[in-house]
């Protein structure tokens, strides 16, 4: 169960996509998703899909785990398709395109999560948010918030499980609203307790918003600049030329 809940699907492979700076990868995901959103002709779709396929190959991504990421969306796709079939059959091709766009989004996001560690992802977000300093928002605060979310969501499920098991042992089942309340109140109480413990723990380790040093350093290399330029050229090509 924890395997499912633990964030990050990163698996180490020796690929050029793995080696890319995480900032470049995040920017790429944003740009490619926007491009996918703007595309309309089948021809563009074909070229774009081919490009994504190429990225998949380059990142040595595991196809079966990619399919696993797509599986939860299967019914949504089916639903969209059926809606088009029943209500506007003449626009069916648009439905197919919508689904195809979705699939592309998921693949693009998966390439990022499969090739980037949580650590690097959070570092990259912190660096990308540095401009926010101008409006007095500290990027470290946001990075720590994200790190804490990633860290504590699985714990939340763990607490819920423990409380449910304890309740089940005493009450037999959990069906009525009152019993559900008995499940949630202790959970909320536990979460607040955790938050207070955690804030003590962070303070006792001298947490401040301002920091000057990093355990994890990310540096842009030539290779990152070249990749970004190639990407921009490709996007221009897709949107203007094809």
């Amino acid at each position: 169960m924890f395997k499912k809940l633990t964030f990050g699907q990163y698996t180490y492979k020796n690929s050029i996509i793995h080696k890319l700076d995480p900032r470049i990868k995040i920017i790429t995901v944003v740009l490619l998703s926007a491009t996918a959103f703007l595309m309309n002709s089948y021809y563009k779709f074909a070229v774009f899909s081919l490009f994504i396929f190429l990225l998949m190959i380059l990142s040595k991504i595991n196809f079966s785990s990619l399919l696993r990421n797509l599986r939860p969306f299967f019914f949504m796709f089916l639903f969209i398709l059926l809606m088009y079939i029943f209500f506007s059959r003449n626009e069916l091709d648009q439905g197919i395109r919508t689904i195809w766009k979705f699939i592309l989004f998921i693949i693009i996001a998966s390439i990022l999560t499969f090739t980037t560690t949580i650590t690097n992802m959070v570092s990259a977000i912190e660096k990308l948010l540095i401009p926010l300093k101008m409006i007095k928002i500290n990027p470290r605060t946001i990075a720590v918030l994200i790190a804490l979310t990633i860290r504590f969501v699985p714990s939340l499920f763990l607490y819920a499980d423990r409380i449910r098991d304890a309740r089940l042992a005493r009450l037999g089942n959990l069906k009525t609203p009152k019993q559900i309340k008995l499940l949630f109140l202790p959970l909320i109480e536990r979460v607040f307790k955790s938050a207070s413990n955690l804030s003590d723990a962070m303070l006792s380790r001298n947490y401040t918003e301002k920091r000057t040093t990093y355990f994890n350093i990310i540096r842009l290399k030539y290779y990152d600049y070249i990749s970004l330029s190639l990407l921009l050229m490709f996007i221009l090509f897709i949107l203007r030329v094809v």
Partner: peptide, 9 residues
Amino acid sequence: PEDQLVHSI
């Protein structure tokens, strides 16, 4: 110990 670890790794 559950409540004093900040990072996932």
